[in-house]
Design a protein around this nucleic acid. Structure first.
Lengths: 156, 156
DNA sequence: ATTGAAATATGTTCGTA
DNA sequence: TACGAACATATTTCAAT
């Protein structure tokens, strides 16, 4: 599976198709076909091409975490004792379901993670009893997201 | 549209269905039905219920930004002069397509944004010519994501 | 790359349990 | 809730352009 690096060519029709499907992955291809005025078979073929190109990374159902009581989102900057602990620390973070993202970053911290918790108490438990317990973690800095105003993908 | 807040009840069958669809939004319901051993009509009905409950927020095609040459992701903490500038600043950030997320946060900054750029040069331009130009923005702190190790949704 | 048509598979509704 | 049957749509392939 070769991942085309930065040179996938898409035209306006590809963009139209993708814009529909980025908004609703289950939108029928034939419906899109009617909207943009080409045949379903053509769209089918274009999607196969886009998938092979590596631009299409898949599709997802999106859940609303608030409906399950998860109302507290936060970013946590993690200081590690030594760079050597990094891969182990990431492995430990993978085991924590509240950790949704994990980035190696430039700047102050070794690692920046995004976490999702039910409430502040849950967040406190996560920080003190889970994340701080990981070997190599010396200190953390937490930024609670009071409100997310923008959440989107790359624009076409 | 009432958004159930933290008390949506789902059982093991709901979870199984959602886990399939969170991984592949276009997986046929009938295929899932065969896997978990109930009828397609039952799944259809459960999905309608889950949608009404507010847990299902929709579905998306996921693109791989690297395929379009977007290889530099970063988090940018933004200091604002006065709290009053916040809504205006967010409006301005919405107009910048490279800004994918925007959070009001506790801690050092007023706002934390996630941005996606083609390269470091593009990031520099974004910071100096777009974000810093927004009225009320006094200073920014940038953390480049060298590598994203985890990227997932809430676990069921 | 695109089309229409054919074959297969799926989505959706409804009566019933 | 769940089922199956019936009907409406959609997906997928293919020969032809």
């Amino acid at each position: 599976m070769k991942a085309n690096k930065g040179n996938v060519q898409i035209d306006g029709i590809d963009k139209k198709i993708l814009r529909y499907l980025m908004e609703d992955a289950r939108k029928p291809i034939l419906e899109i076909a009617r909207h943009i005025g080409i045949s379903g078979a053509a769209i089918h073929q274009r999607l196969r091409k886009l998938e092979k190109s590596g631009l299409l990374a898949g599709s997802k159902f999106v859940l609303n975490p608030k409906a399950l009581g998860y109302t507290t989102m936060a970013y946590v900057g993690i200081f590690l004792d030594k760079a050597m602990s990094n891969p182990q620390a990431v492995k430990a973070l993978e085991q924590i379901p509240e950790v949704l993202e994990c980035h190696y970053t430039t700047g102050n911290w070794s690692i920046l993670v995004k976490v999702l918790c039910k409430d502040n108490e849950h967040l406190m438990f996560l920080l003190n009893k889970k994340i701080q317990q990981i070997e190599g973690v010396s200190r953390t800095e937490t930024f609670i997201s009071l409100d997310q105003q923008i959440d989107r993908q790359i624009a076409l």
